[in-house]
């Protein structure tokens, strides 16, 4: 699934049947490259984040989650945590590990069953997901193509 098509989708708690918010973005973690957390727009000024492990199902109309408790206010997260917004790849430059910039992340394709990253998209083209090494506050780092 493309992140751009998942953005704006409702997030619903299975346990309470409440709509908690909508998907705005994701954070990524390497080895193997996967979505570590989903960022949500919720009521109030600050958004919330939720670890991928709490995802119940990625449905056609909504993302269902196991429990409401798993949502954490975004501003309470330390920068060393996987779900911190510094690991959000959108809009960041892509650096090959050799120090060469190859574009800016515009979208990504992921497996909605396990959160695995299939591909990263820049204006210049597609980068296979398994080349991802890291996402930090400055850039997205990828391996050199074989």
């Amino acid at each position: 699934m493309l992140l751009s098509s998942a953005q704006g989708r409702a997030v619903v708690a299975v346990s309470t049947a409440e709509q908690l918010g909508t998907i705005t973005a994701v954070t990524l973690a390497p080895s193997p490259p996967h979505i570590s957390a989903v960022r949500l727009k919720t009521r109030g000024r600050h958004g919330h984040v939720m670890a991928w492990s709490n995802v119940h199902s990625f449905g056609k109309d909504a993302l269902t989650v196991r429990s409401v408790e798993a949502l954490k206010p975004e501003n309470e997260l330390g920068s060393d945590e996987e779900a911190h917004r510094s690991h959000d790849p959108l809009g960041k430059p892509v650096l090959v590990e050799t120090g060469e910039c190859v574009g800016t992340i515009e979208d990504l394709d992921f497996d909605e069953t396990d959160g695995r990253i299939r591909a990263l998209f820049t204006a210049e083209g597609e980068i296979p997901g398994d080349r991802l090494i890291g996402v930090g506050s400055y850039a997205v780092i990828v391996q050199r193509p074989e």
């Binding site: 650096l95 590990e97 090494i133 890291g134 930090g136 506050s137 400055y138 850039a139 780092i141």
Partner: peptide
């Protein structure tokens, strides 16, 4: 190989493999 002038390397960021500019 790419050829760079020292001038172009000055002011380049130092970036970790985790994507942080330090």
């Amino acid at each position: 190989s790419t050829y760079l002038r020292a001038r172009e390397i000055r002011e380049e960021p130092v970036v970790t493999l985790a994507g942080e500019d330090i």
